[in-house]
């Protein structure tokens, strides 16, 4: 199962953040939360998570830019990126994958589905 993987959850909506945090903690992840791009980058550098759950539409920096940053930084090479976004158009999803994301999940999502997918990713 999961050996306390570190997961960084990023979303600007506090309620979604709340639910994701609970969900991930319940499933044995070591959870960190961030509400915007700045916090994300800070936590990234400090903690080197194994997975990042990324919202795309955020006030200061959008999720795409953060993904790009992660994928191009040596330090975070092994970090997996999972987009969780309401942007559901084909081109948005494609863009996400083009930037190197491992997974793209659209909102609203099923909790079970989300957890399964993420777990599968890490196995």
């Amino acid at each position: 199962m999961n050996q306390a993987y570190k997961i960084l959850v990023v979303d600007d909506d506090p309620f979604i953040l709340m639910s994701l945090e609970f969900l991930m903690r319940k499933n044995g992840f070591d959870v960190m939360i961030a509400r915007n791009g700045t916090e994300t980058l800070e936590l990234l550098d400090q903690n080197s998570p194994d997975v990042v759950l990324l919202d795309i539409m955020m006030p200061d920096v959008d999720g795409y830019a953060i993904c790009k940053h992660i994928k191009s930084t040596e330090k975070h090479k092994l970090c997996k990126v999972v987009f969780i976004s309401a942007k559901s158009k084909e081109i948005d999803i494609q863009k996400g994958y083009n930037l190197g994301a491992e997974l793209y999940i659209t909102k609203p999502f099923s909790n079970k589905d989300l957890v399964n997918k993420i777990t599968a990713l890490l196995d």
């Binding site: 909506d13 309620f15 979604i16 709340m18 639910s19 994701l20 609970f22 969900l23 319940k26 539409m57 309401a86 942007k87 909102k107 609203p108 999502f109 099923s110 909790n111 079970k112």
Partner: peptide
């Protein structure tokens, strides 16, 4: 999108 956001938290939290 504006609709989906609250829907997401509603659904997720209710499911929890």
């Amino acid at each position: 999108h504006e609709i989906r956001t609250p829907l997401t938290s509603i659904r997720s939290l209710a499911e929890i």
